[in-house]
Structures are given as C-alpha cells and as structure tokens.
C-alpha cells in the first residue's frame, strides 16, 4: 500500500522549490498537483520541482508536470525540473516531452537559471 506523498517546500534564492519525497503515480499525482497550484498562488518568480529522490513517475505524474508547465506559462513563472534520474528521463524522452521542460542536474543549478 502506498504511503501518502510528502512534498517539502523551501525557498532558495527567491525560487520556490517543491521536492516530492517518493514516487509519483496515479495515487499520489493529485497531491503533487495541489502542491503546485498552492505554490503558484504565492506568485513566486520561479518554481523548481526537485525530483532527485523520485525513482518512478507514471503518466499521471507526467500529466501533472505538463499541467505545471501550462500554469507557469500562464502566470509567467519560470519552471525548472531538477535532479531527474535516468528512468524519469527515459519517460520524458519516450513521451517526447523532454524538449518542453528546462531541466538541471541539481536544485542549486536550477535556482540560477
């Protein structure tokens, strides 16, 4: 049975950083979606989603990231994904979404973008 998704939220150099602490699948994607919406209500200059401890994302998780991209574009907020592991990168490639997102290896690099 899946445990609930815990998402750490911090501010680094003026950027809001959301760091989900476990895999994002169909059961957890709604929590991620709510966290992104709440973060954007605070009108940050930039949103960074730190995926460095996320080993698995399914298409529900990818759909949530696509929604985040749409919302940040509407709000004119920069969005960067940080710390993607090879499995998540493969998923982004197979769904041809890698080119749509700005990605960085670490949160520190993402906050400089």
């Amino acid at each position: 049975m899946n445990t609930p998704l815990v998402i750490k939220s911090t501010t680094v150099n003026g950027s809001t950083v959301l760091a989900p602490q476990s895999d994002i699948d169909m059961s957890r994607a709604p929590t991620m979606r709510d966290a992104i919406k709440s973060a954007l209500e605070a009108k940050p200059s930039k949103l960074v989603i730190d995926l460095s401890v996320v080993n698995y994302v399914d298409s529900s998780g990818i759909a949530t990231l696509v929604e985040a991209l749409k919302w940040t574009r509407e709000e004119k907020v920069g969005l960067t994904l940080a710390g993607l592991n090879p499995r998540v990168k493969t998923l982004m490639e197979i769904t041809k979404l890698s080119a749509m997102f700005t990605t960085r290896a670490t949160v520190e690099e993402a906050c400089k973008v």
């Binding site: 298409s59 759909a63 949530t64 696509v66 749409k70 769904t95 979404l97």
Partner: peptide
C-alpha cells in the same frame, strides 16, 4: 498524438511504444 502537449492520454502510447 504526442505533438498535442496536454495532460493525459499518454498511457496507451507508452504501452505500444514499450
């Protein structure tokens, strides 16, 4: 179609691709 960037509808594509 993957050019249509929107949430959802990726599951069948992933299954057939994999």
């Amino acid at each position: 179609e993957l050019d249509d960037v929107r949430p959802g509808g990726l599951g069948v594509h992933i299954i057939k691709e994999t």
